[in-house]
Amino acid sequence: MAAAAAAGAGPEMVRGQVFDVGPRYTNLSYIGEGAYGMVCSAYDNVNKVRVAIKKISPFEHQTYCQRTLREIKILLRFRHENIIGINDIIRAPTIEQMKDVYIVQDLMETDLYKLLKTQHLSNDHICYFLYQILRGLKYIHSANVLHRDLKPSNLLLNTTCDLKICDFGLARVADPDHDHTGFLTEYVATRWYRAPEIMLNSKGYTKSIDIWSVGCILAEMLSNRPIFPGKHYLDQLNHILGILGSPSQEDLNCIINLKARNYLLSLPHKNKVPWNRLFPNADSKALDLLDKMLTFNPHKRIEVEQALAHPYLEQYYDPSDEPIAEAPFKFDMELDDLPKEKLKELIFEETARFQPGYRS
C-alpha cells in the first residue's frame, strides 16, 4: 500500500510507478496490472468513496492506442447498470505532455475469474450472474457493438453480487458484411471463450460470437473449470467437437473457408456428449439454455433477447427493466489503419471533457 500523499506533496508512487492523480484522489492501494497499465484503488475526496484507477501508458504502440481509444469512446457513450462506466479521466493539459491516461471507475471487490478459483456457486448465484451478463449484453448488442472478449476476468463483482462487464478494448461495431482481413492475426481474445466460426472463417462476425462466450462462462460457473481449455488453435476446435459432436452437413455448409471445411470433413465422426453427463448436478433449465448458447452453427445460436426470456431466468426476466441503447454506435473511421500519432490526438480530444474549465 502506498503511503497517503500529504496535501501538495506531488504524485504518489505505487510499486515504483508514478500515479499522478492528486489532489482529488489519494490513499492509493495496488490492485493489479494488465498488459499496459496498473490498477489501484484510491480515495475520492470529492465523492467520499474509494474508486478504481487504471493507469494506461499506450502511446508507444499502435495496438494499445487503438484499444484505449475504443474503450474510452464506447464506455463514455454507454450507460447501463451492468456495464462499468467511466467516472473521470485524468491526463496532462497538453498533448505533448500526455504520456499516461488515468481512467477512474467504480471500485468492484472482485471478478468472476477470482471468485470461481475459490468458491463453488449455488444455482441461485449462477442464475443471477447469468441474468446480469445477458442484461448488459442486450444493451451492448442493441448499440450494434460486439464485445468480443467476454470471459470471467472481464466480469466485475461486488459483495452485493452486482455484476458489471468491463474491458471493451477489443470491441467492434457489428459488421457481418465487412471482410476484416487479418482478423485472426489481430484477434487476441482469450482462445477458450472463442466461437468456432472465428477459427473457421475470417469473413465478418456477428453478435452470436458473444453468446458463445457467455455459454462458455455459464459452463464454467457450473463446474469451476473452463469447458474448452484448448492449448492452441486446432486443439481448441477438437475440444469443442469432442463435446458438441461432429457438425451436420448443414452446419458445414455455413463454413465459407474450404480449407477449414475440408479439415472438419477429414475428422472421424464424434457423438455429442449429453450435458447432464458433463454437469450431473446442474439445473435442467440451465443445461437447456447452455445447449442453445453453445450451438456450433452461429445462425442457430440463441440471441440475447431470447436467452433473457428463457425459463431458467424467469424469476428475473423483465423486458421493461432491460434497457437498450438510445442509438446504434458508430465509429467515424476504422481505427485499425491509423498511425499511433493520430490515435493519440483522438484520445486527447475524447478525454477533453474531463479537463478543468472544459467548454463543449
Rank of each mutant, 00 (worst) to 15 (best):
D44E: 15
K138M: 10
E109C: 10
H269Y: 09
A219W: 13
V49W: 09
L343E: 11
W275G: 06
R225Y: 01
R225I: 03
D291A: 08
G37M: 06
D177M: 06
S41I: 02
D318Y: 14
F129S: 11
Y233M: 14
L234K: 08
K330E: 08
L258I: 08
T351Q: 02
K151G: 05
P328H: 14
K138C: 08
D336S: 02
I198P: 01
S246P: 00
K73H: 10
P176A: 09
L130P: 13
C65N: 02
G242N: 02
T68W: 01
D44R: 05
W275A: 07
K300D: 09
L116S: 08
R261Q: 14
H232Y: 02
S29A: 04
Q315H: 13
N257I: 15
D321K: 05
M199E: 03
G37H: 12
S122K: 08
C65F: 14
N276P: 06
I256M: 12
P298M: 06
S208R: 03
M221A: 11
L278R: 01
A6E: 07
L258P: 13
K259D: 02
A195H: 00
Y316G: 02
C216G: 08
I103M: 07
D162P: 00
H180M: 11
I72R: 08
P280S: 14
C161I: 06
S153L: 08
N224V: 11
V173H: 07
I95G: 04
F59W: 08
D149A: 15
N281F: 10
R353H: 07
L200G: 06
P226H: 15
P339H: 09
H299W: 10
A195W: 04
L184F: 12
A2G: 13
A309H: 02
Q249P: 06
I240N: 13
F296Y: 14
C40I: 00
P23Y: 00
A189W: 08
H310A: 03
I74T: 04
T63I: 10
G136F: 01
H310W: 02
P229E: 06
L222S: 06
D111G: 03
M333F: 05
K55M: 13
L155A: 06
S360D: 12
D291L: 12
K203E: 14
M199D: 05
K344R: 14
E197L: 10
M199R: 03
G22F: 11
T295V: 04
E326Q: 10
G230P: 00
E220G: 09
I31L: 07
D318A: 14
P229Y: 00
L218P: 12
L156S: 07
I243K: 01
G242H: 09
C254T: 09
I140T: 00
R70M: 11
M108W: 03
R194S: 15
L313G: 10
Q306H: 14
D321V: 15
G215M: 07
G10V: 15
S122V: 04
V145G: 07
L234A: 11
H61R: 10
P229G: 05
A2T: 14
D100A: 12
R135H: 10
I165N: 15
D20W: 00
L163T: 08
A171I: 02
D318C: 02
L107S: 10
L265W: 01
S213Y: 08
S284H: 07
E96D: 12
D20H: 12
S266D: 03
L222C: 08
E71Q: 02
Y128C: 11
M98F: 11
L156T: 03
M333E: 05
M221Y: 06
W212M: 10
T181G: 11
G136R: 13
R24I: 04
H239Q: 15
F354C: 06
Y263I: 07
V14H: 08
I165A: 10
Y131N: 15
Q17H: 15
G136D: 01
E220R: 10
T190V: 08
L264R: 01
G182I: 13
N271Q: 09
E12S: 14
Q236N: 05
E305F: 04
N297G: 04
P311L: 12
K55V: 11
T185D: 11
L200A: 11
S266K: 00
E81G: 12
H120G: 04
I211M: 12
F129N: 03
Y312I: 07
Y358M: 12
I53Y: 00
I256T: 03
V304C: 09
E250S: 00
A260D: 12
Y233Q: 06
A282W: 01
A219T: 14
E345D: 15
Y263L: 14
A3V: 13
A35P: 10
G215H: 13
G230H: 00
G169Y: 01
I84R: 01
R91M: 08
F19M: 11
G22M: 07
I243D: 01
A5I: 04
I31G: 00
G8Q: 13
L267G: 03
D106W: 00
A286W: 01
N257F: 09
Y102L: 07
G169D: 12
L76V: 00
C40A: 00
P268N: 02
K231L: 05
D162V: 12
D106I: 00
A174H: 05
E81V: 13
E305Y: 03
D337W: 01
N47F: 12
I53M: 14
G215T: 08
Q66A: 06
Y358R: 11
I211A: 13
L289H: 02
R225F: 03
A189Q: 12
F279P: 00
Y64C: 09
V188N: 04
K73G: 14
G85Y: 03
C254N: 05
A325M: 01
R359V: 09
K164M: 10
L115Q: 15
P93M: 05
N47G: 12
L294K: 04
T118K: 12
G16I: 00
D106H: 04
Q119R: 07
R277A: 08
N257G: 10
R79V: 08
G204A: 12
I198N: 14
L287A: 06
T110C: 13
H141K: 11
T206E: 13
F296P: 02
A219F: 12
D88Y: 15
I198F: 15
G85S: 13
E109N: 02
I217T: 07
G169R: 02
D111Q: 04
K259Y: 05
P229R: 07
F331I: 15
V173R: 09
N154W: 04
H239L: 15
G169M: 05
H141G: 09
A282M: 02
A327W: 07
S57W: 02
L346T: 12
E350S: 01
D88Q: 07
Y30G: 01
H269K: 11
K203I: 15
K73C: 14
L130C: 05
G230S: 12
G182Y: 12
Y317L: 01
Q355D: 09
P23S: 06
L200N: 12
I217G: 07
A282E: 03
T295D: 05
H299M: 12
R191Y: 07
L265P: 09
N27P: 09
K73L: 14
N297I: 15
Y128K: 11
H180A: 07
F228S: 09
L218D: 10
N262T: 02
P196Y: 06
P247L: 10
I89D: 01
L115E: 03
Y317E: 00
N47L: 12
T110L: 12
Q132N: 09
S41W: 06
H120T: 04
E33S: 00
L289W: 06
I255A: 07
A143N: 06
L264V: 05
Q97D: 11
H269L: 15
V46M: 08
I324W: 09
L313W: 03
Y25I: 06
N47P: 05
D162I: 00
Y193C: 08
H232S: 00
S246A: 02
F59V: 11
D179M: 11
G85W: 00
I256F: 15
G22D: 03
K138T: 05
L184C: 11
Y358D: 12
Y358Q: 13
P274F: 00
M333W: 03
V188P: 02
L157T: 11
T63Y: 10
G16L: 11
W212P: 11
L134H: 02
T63K: 14
F228N: 01
A35I: 08
A92R: 00
I95P: 02
N27Q: 04
W192R: 15
D44N: 14
